[in-house]
Nucleic acid binder design. Sequence first.
DNA 1: CATGAATGAGGATTCATTCAT
DNA 2: AATGAATGAATCCTCATTCAT
Lengths: 205, 205, 205, 205
Amino acid sequence: MKGEKRKQLILDCAKKLFAKQGFYRTQISDIVREINIARGTVYQYFANKEEIFICLLEDAYSKWEKAIYDAVELINLKTITPVEYFRLRIKTTLDFLLADPDICEIVMSMGFGLPEGLEKATRKLEEKIRDIALNDFKLGLHNGYIRESINTLHAAEMIAAAVLRSAYYFQNNKKEEKQIDKITDEIVNLFAPGIFTADVLAALS
Amino acid sequence: MKGEKRKQLILDCAKKLFAKQGFYRTQISDIVREINIARGTVYQYFANKEEIFICLLEDAYSKWEKAIYDAVELINLKTITPVEYFRLRIKTTLDFLLADPDICEIVMSMGFGLPEGLEKATRKLEEKIRDIALNDFKLGLHNGYIRESINTLHAAEMIAAAVLRSAYYFQNNKKEEKQIDKITDEIVNLFAPGIFTADVLAALS
Amino acid sequence: MKGEKRKQLILDCAKKLFAKQGFYRTQISDIVREINIARGTVYQYFANKEEIFICLLEDAYSKWEKAIYDAVELINLKTITPVEYFRLRIKTTLDFLLADPDICEIVMSMGFGLPEGLEKATRKLEEKIRDIALNDFKLGLHNGYIRESINTLHAAEMIAAAVLRSAYYFQNNKKEEKQIDKITDEIVNLFAPGIFTADVLAALS
Amino acid sequence: MKGEKRKQLILDCAKKLFAKQGFYRTQISDIVREINIARGTVYQYFANKEEIFICLLEDAYSKWEKAIYDAVELINLKTITPVEYFRLRIKTTLDFLLADPDICEIVMSMGFGLPEGLEKATRKLEEKIRDIALNDFKLGLHNGYIRESINTLHAAEMIAAAVLRSAYYFQNNKKEEKQIDKITDEIVNLFAPGIFTADVLAALS
DNA sequence: CATGAATGAGGATTCATTCAT
DNA sequence: AATGAATGAATCCTCATTCAT
């Protein structure tokens, strides 16, 4: 139990530092200095620096997946409108990202230039978001909610990028006291007209 | 003249390697081995590794600005429609990014975790794209082309992210023989309905 | 009593590992993992890693001395021939070494490159074997059994080396089902002609 | 050319230190301090500590092989007696070992407990000596010089061990001003009676 | 200008040993 | 006595940068 706490302490500190300085500029010495433990202690819990990083991401991914799953549990799939459903997806993801700005920062980096194995690991979240969007699109097409003309994969990519970017934008404009709901609406309003069929959109007004 | 050629050789090689491996994993030894010059020679042209990186980006930025400027030169501002203008911006940027996939890759990384000064430098392109979009929005609002309801800054961010992401998407799906025009249309079709006023959109059909 | 058993457990395990991997490559963690005790427990019985090693050797040395002593107890010094006596020495030593191949391996290493104090400790067995041989030679010379011409110290060194080497050779050729007696004979037959006087040798046939 | 000299400097120093302290206790810092170069310089010539060690041994092995080869070149194989031939082998090897006491010390260690790959490397010399002896025995048997009764492999092992041990013994008794020739004779006199047939031995007197 | 050997600060990782429980 | 988490000194190796030729 004590050990688990320690591990978490290291992970939390590492997350903060990785988010601020990236992988290379964050040194084990920074971590141990910050939380006042010995160098070796880190290696009692993690094989190496990379493992800390991966562990961090995997924690985040499983949290995100749970959040997505839980969000859908709470709603009535029978009565929700397609646009509301879209909105829910966006909001759930934003809630998640904004609840953990450091992970948000880390994932936004897309892992460019990281050691071999880590690159893929960091790109996973964006891929997961994209894949969920893609899947939703397929369902929507089948039900006639989504415009036949769109390239679903490309659209999903753009939406994933925009959502991540919005989270990032939100972090850096917090002074405006912007509500997550407002941000969500802005995303929905920007994309909905290009995604949904006229029928779906008409029902909105 | 010979010197200038050498400098360019170094820059080209560095660009390729930075794009493939990022800043930290690219070593001076990699560069000199690749182009068969001596270690010291690099330092005849650049103060240090960071300067190579910055130089690279600045080259790219000025090329992009020129491209944007040239594109507008060629058109008749009087007769072009707002959507066509939007489309032109997108296409110009995509043309530029796809003509130089390495820079595209570097910029996509957003400089996360780079040495102090470089972070800002890498984020510049996305900012530039966003700022142009923002500026266009202001003009468009003034002329009644853009919906009053949108948050222009946020929308500009999202569009910038989506365009960069599209370039990236394009690289990795080249096998589909997708035309830049098609990609451009997909972007325009996704965003236009959410951006432009009903009047502008009506004129399309 | 329980404690004594534990100490022995540690020693046995350490012997096995030291024999397989040497001093440096054997880690305390290897030992405790193998016998399922806690790290700290080792230090209840031994001051440090070196002490385990020394303790191991000393155990071996006293066993060897007892073996040598016992062997002589059992024979009739009056009637034994010089060659038979030589043979007995060799066989006793081989019996001892082959009964404990791990110690054999450790001693064969001659302690090269070990931490300061241990070098001397590991060399002791070879020295002991050599010294016994040397002493026997002196007796033999006095009784006219040993050729006057030989350099007893040098010969003793070579015999000690050859016996240790034979033990090692035996380990690695066990498949041949070679008997210790056969190995012993081979050693005796190789050395006896060069060591003993013609008189002693003549009595053999 | 300058580089080759540096490499040799490092090798020489490393040999001295490895011989004195073994592999593990010899640190790169020891080497660079001793010959007054920078840490990194070592790694310009060798990938790592192990490579220095291996390089050292391989140098020694090729020198030994050359010595063995040259020695046979100089003699008249027609007229040399079997015992003289045996003597020549011993002397050549002793000359070689005593000309380079550090290598002698390193090889004597038999690599026990070294990192994986190095163990085998250090054992090579003893094996090479043994193999040459073994080969000579086979020739000798065929010509009726060697007693049919001996186990050639085992005898070769013992002789190799004894020769190496003699070299070691010689190092530590130098004060006696012992000549290599004398040591060689002692080895020959100890082993010859046990190895050669009565005919060959009779011809000696 | 070009070279490439030399530099050495810097960082990750290991592992024997300690000590509070 | 036993535990095992914590310690931190020790060590290998990297790599951007310099500088004499």
